[in-house]
Structures are given as structure tokens and as C-alpha cells.
């Protein structure tokens, strides 16, 4: 094998792979110090899971990644977070544009009280991603296909999104997030309101999405983290105690607290 080429490929893949780079991030809600000195490199085209006990700061940190915390008055974020090497907290960055690049899916499916079609079309419209009705139709279809929902809803695009089942609503929300052509998808416990079948469908979808996006998922289910992610970060009391390959975390974690948490020994 040619050594030079391998080395170059290595460097190239490193450059492509770090999608988000956070350094020394601290988050405060008034006096509450919710995130303490967290640094992490989140890879492109892979799924990163955030795990840890309730209140450890998973959602808070996730929301930093698309500046969702800006909407909370008492919340203060310190440190640097870069997307493709550019500081997302820079004054020149428009948070609305940022959130189109870094989409978010929430715990409870929250479709707009509009048609299935409009739920998807809304984002691309406001971001000016479609030049014509045909363009928009194309975007809607492709987003629904990517979210593995097209076959189930193609004959009732005008029906209200809220009339779908819970699992379908969640996939609709994922389709909505995908429609603005994001690069990163943040998901905060996206399956916690779903039954096992709908959960499996969303997990299958996440596995599919990682071919095109960087996916970050907060989950309370250890099995889910183990099933869908390649990297896992363990949070505890606002600190990120361990970050490693998911296979390493679930067979031989370095940190005693990670071990205690994933094996169900937390008191």
C-alpha cells in the first residue's frame, strides 16, 4: 500500500469528519451552572449519543449547538462552538439561518396544525429554497422519502399533520427538519413518546440519515444509544465525563461513573 496516499486520505478524512467543535463551553441559567467546561468534537456522517441522568445538562448542551438557548432570557453561554470551523456565536451569524443548517427534532412530535404538505414546505419557503411550486413539490417529496414517510402519506398530503400516528408525526417532524437541507440534526429524546415499532422505524431512519448528516441524539435509553450511535458522550452534573466510541463505552468504559450509570448502579 502507498504510504503517502494513506496519510493524505487520513488527513482528508479528519478534515471532513469534525463537523462541530466545541471548546470549554459553560452554560449558566442565572446562577445555575448547568454545563461545565465541555469540549467535544462531533463527527460528520455519524450519530453521536448524549447520555446521562436527568438534569445533567444533555438538553442544555444540545440546544447550544443551534443556539436554541438564545431564546431563554436567563441563559448565558460561554466558550466556543464551531460549525465547519466557523464560530456559531459570532455576531455575524443569523440564528435563524443557523437553525436551518442545524435542525432540531424534539421529544414530543410537534407538527404545525396544518397540512402534511405545509408542515414540510414551511421551512424551505421562508428560507427561499424553492423557486417554483414544482421545486417545492420536489423538496416535500424528497424530505418525506428520506424520512421514510412518503409511501404512507403520499395520497393525503393535504390532510392535517396532527392526524397522523405518534410515530408518523415524529417522522413528519424529522422530514420537516430535513427539508431545509440541514447539515446537522439534533434530536432530544425523539422516541420517548413512541411505541417500540415506531421507535424502531425512527432508529432505522436515524441510521439512514447518518449517511448524509451529522446526527446528535439525546436519549434515556441505553439500548437506543448502543443501537444507533457510533460515538457516545456521558454527562454527569454538567460535566462531560467520558466521550468515546459507543462500542467502547458499552463494553469497557474508562470512567467509574459511566460504568455505574450504564449498568444501572446509580443511586
Amino acid at each position: 500500500m502507498n504510504k503517502t496516499i494513506t496519510a493524505e486520505a487520513q488527513i482528508a478524512s479528519n478534515i471532513v469528519s469534525a463537523k462541530i467543535s466545541a471548546r470549554k463551553v459553560n452554560v449558566f441559567y442565572g446562577d445555575t451552572h448547568a454545563i461545565k467546561d465541555v469540549s467535544i468534537e462531533i463527527l460528520d456522517r455519524s450519530v453521536t449519543a448524549f447520555i446521562g441522568p436527568s438534569g445533567c445538562g444533555k438538553s442544555t448542551f444540545l440546544r447550544c449547538l443551534n443556539r436554541m438557548n438564545d431564546t431563554i432570557d436567563i441563559c448565558r453561554v460561554e466558550g466556543t462552538i464551531e460549525l465547519d470551523g466557523h464560530d456559531i456565536y459570532d455576531a455575524s451569524v443569523d440564528p435563524v439561518q443557523l437553525r436551518a443548517r442545524v435542525g432540531m427534532v424534539f421529544q414530543k412530535p410537534n407538527p404545525f396544525p396544518k397540512s402534511i404538505y405545509d408542515n414540510i414546505a414551511y421551512g424551505p419557503k421562508i428560507h427561499g429554497l424553492a423557486q417554483s411550486k414544482a421545486d417545492l413539490d420536489g423538496i416535500v417529496e424528497s424530505a418525506l422519502r428520506r424520512a421514510a414517510l412518503w409511501e404512507e402519506v403520499k395520497d393525503r398530503l393535504a390532510a392535517p399533520g396532527t392526524g397522523l400516528s405518534g410515530g408518523q408525526q415524529q417522522r413528519l417532524c424529522i422530514a420537516r427538519a430535513i427539508a431545509t437541507a440541514p447539515e446537522v440534526l439534533l434530536m432530544d429524546e425523539p422516541c420517548s413518546a413512541l411505541d417500540p415499532i415506531a421507535t424502531a422505524q425512527v432508529e432505522e431512519l436515524i441510521d439512514e440519515l447518518r449517511k448524509s448528516y451529522s446526527v446528535v441524539i439525546v436519549t434515556h435509553s441505553m439500548q437506543q444509544a448502543a443501537r444507533v450511535s457510533q460515538k457516545t458522550a456521558f454527562f454527569h452534573l454538567g460535566l462531560m465525563l467520558e466521550y468515546d466510541d459507543t462500542s467502547k463505552i458499552f463494553t469497557n468504559p474508562d470512567h467509574e461513573k459511566t460504568q455505574a450509570y450504564i449498568t444501572g448502579r446509580f443511586g
Binding site: M222, T251, N252, P253, I262, T263
Partner: peptide
């Protein structure tokens, strides 16, 4: 039980 880490080992 779907054991992990030291339990699995």
C-alpha cells in the same frame, strides 16, 4: 437484562 460493560464481561 441486556447487560453492558463489566456486567456483560
Amino acid at each position: 437484562r441486556q447487560p453492558v460493560a463489566s456486567d456483560l464481561r
